[in-house]
Amino acid sequence: MRLKNRHVLGWLEASPLALVLLLFLVAPIVMIVIVSFWGATEFSIYPAFQFDNYEFLFGSPVTYRVFLATLKYAFITWALTLAIGFTVAYFLAFHVRSLTMQIALFLVCTIPFWTSNIIRMISWIPFLGRNGIANQTLISWGLIDEPLEWLLYSDFAVILAFVHLYTLFMVVPIFNTMMRIDKSLLEAARDNGASGLQTLVHVILPLTKPGIMIGTIFVVTLVMGDFITVRFMSGSQRANVGRLISNDIGLLQYPSAAATAVVLLCTVLIVIAILLRFVNIRKEL
């Protein structure tokens, strides 16, 4: 009786969460899968069971190019955010000595997370534009004669914005794991004659792996699912899978958008499944 009670009580307490996820996560996914087999005219969609959408998707060279571009964005952003995020977290965790200072600087890093992504993207315009700060500075230093055109509305701008928006998703989990490393381990390494670099590579890095994995999951999925940063920062000149979907939606081609969405979801889930093999998220919080 007690055993049964425990399950019932658990579900009672978790039921609001379960309900929201059922209605706004599971049902939409199911709906997208269903609609991906439907047909569409120029103005409407109709129920059917056909593979046309998938055939068109996998038959088009654009699809492969765009998926490749998406993976490229994800990989470059991942490498940069990891390098920057790890360095920042390492500084905060091991070089800042007072806890108050650590918390204060950590907050400085996380506050932008609670502000608008759209505004943070817009705020790059005065920097990168043709007459922006970057170009004016470079010209006044005599490094270039003409304004660089590739600063804004380019792959460069897209990746810069990704790194700007998502590095803190690396900093937070890595800092969190680093703070839990037993300081006596570092002393032991030093006592045994390890240099700073050796301690970093052989002690800190392996112990920080779970944090790195969690950060990686965040960054990779955010970049792969993005459609707005790429559109805004590339001035609609570059494409990723998210934009492919949102363009179809704009043309009311919901079945085709749904098919692309299903393939995107599968790709993301496979990537996460691979990453999750390396970490147990619930233990790391």
Binding site: I32, T221, G225, D226, I249, V268
Partner: peptide, 12 residues
């Protein structure tokens, strides 16, 4: 729910 591409929720 956290890692799903947002556009899927929007679309679905």
């Amino acid at each position: 729910s956290l890692v799903i591409p947002s556009i899927l929720i929007s679309l679905g």
